[in-house]
Amino acid sequence: MSERLREQLGDFSSIVCLKAIITGMEDALGEKATAISLIAAGRTRGKKLAESLGLVGVTDFETVTQALSQALGPEGTRLLIIEKIVQDGTCIKVYVKETICSAGEPQGSTRQCTFTLGAVWGALEKILNKRLQGKHTESVLRGSAYDVFEFTELG
């Protein structure tokens, strides 16, 4: 991000405002329609990000992790922290923390990551040039050390 999007306020806004957008959408559209929309928006963001970072075709997950972490983590947009991406058989597992989706949620919350899942999903699809199915399988809100996103290739 070389050019600032707003002259005085800069490129970032509050998690409180984003969470209000999400809960407002859930009130208006329902949880399922909101989740579908936010995942789709995230996937679009992830695909564009992977392309802009020159990651298309990169197969080394350490390189991918570093590039995505820099763009989405503390030095980037602060969407989440990607700890690691690992291949586990036919499944790709992405271990993340401090997601925007989990921020401020109480322990035991059933909140799932939507936009953040979608952003990682879209990036991996673009990088690998494959259609993937993604799921949020473990949550920091329900006792896991990480939010874990799992991706498998669609036939």
Rank of each mutant, 00 (worst) to 15 (best):
V58I: 15
E26Q: 13
K47S: 08
A20S: 06
H136R: 07
L55C: 03
A41L: 11
I92P: 07
D147R: 01
I21W: 15
E98R: 15
Q107Y: 12
V120N: 01
R131S: 15
L117Q: 04
I127E: 05
S102G: 12
L68W: 11
D147E: 06
S52A: 07
V120T: 05
K126A: 03
A50H: 04
V120D: 00
G30M: 04
E105L: 09
R45A: 12
V148C: 07
A40Y: 04
G54H: 05
K32D: 07
Q87P: 00
V58A: 13
K84T: 10
T77D: 07
F12A: 02
T137P: 05
I85T: 09
E98S: 15
F149S: 07
R43M: 11
K19A: 09
L154S: 11
R142K: 15
A40G: 00
L68R: 04
S13I: 08
G155H: 06
S109W: 10
F61M: 09
E150M: 02
R6T: 07
E62D: 12
R6E: 04
E83Y: 06
L68A: 12
V96W: 06
E75V: 06
T110D: 14
A71Q: 03
G76W: 04
E105G: 04
M25L: 15
I82D: 04
A41E: 05
G10Q: 04
Y95N: 00
K97F: 06
L29A: 07
R45G: 01
Y95T: 01
R6P: 00
I36T: 14
I36M: 06
C113Y: 15
G134Y: 07
S102N: 14
L128R: 03
I36P: 00
K84Q: 14
V120F: 01
V148K: 04
R131M: 13
P74F: 10
I22D: 14
R6V: 05
L124F: 03
I39M: 05
I21D: 12
R4Q: 10
E153N: 03
V120E: 01
W121L: 04
K48A: 14
K32H: 03
A33Q: 14
L132A: 01
G54W: 01
T23F: 11
S14I: 02
L80A: 09
T59M: 09
E150G: 02
G42K: 02
I21P: 00
Q107N: 10
Q133F: 08
R4C: 05
D27A: 06
K93S: 12
V58Y: 09
E98I: 06
G143Q: 05
A103M: 08
L117K: 06
L9Y: 14
G73I: 10
E138Y: 03
S13V: 11
G89M: 09
I15Q: 04
K97S: 08
T152D: 00
I127V: 13
G155I: 02
R6G: 00
L49H: 01
S69F: 11
K135A: 12
Q8G: 02
L72R: 08
T114L: 08
D147F: 03
L79C: 02
L80T: 13
T63A: 05
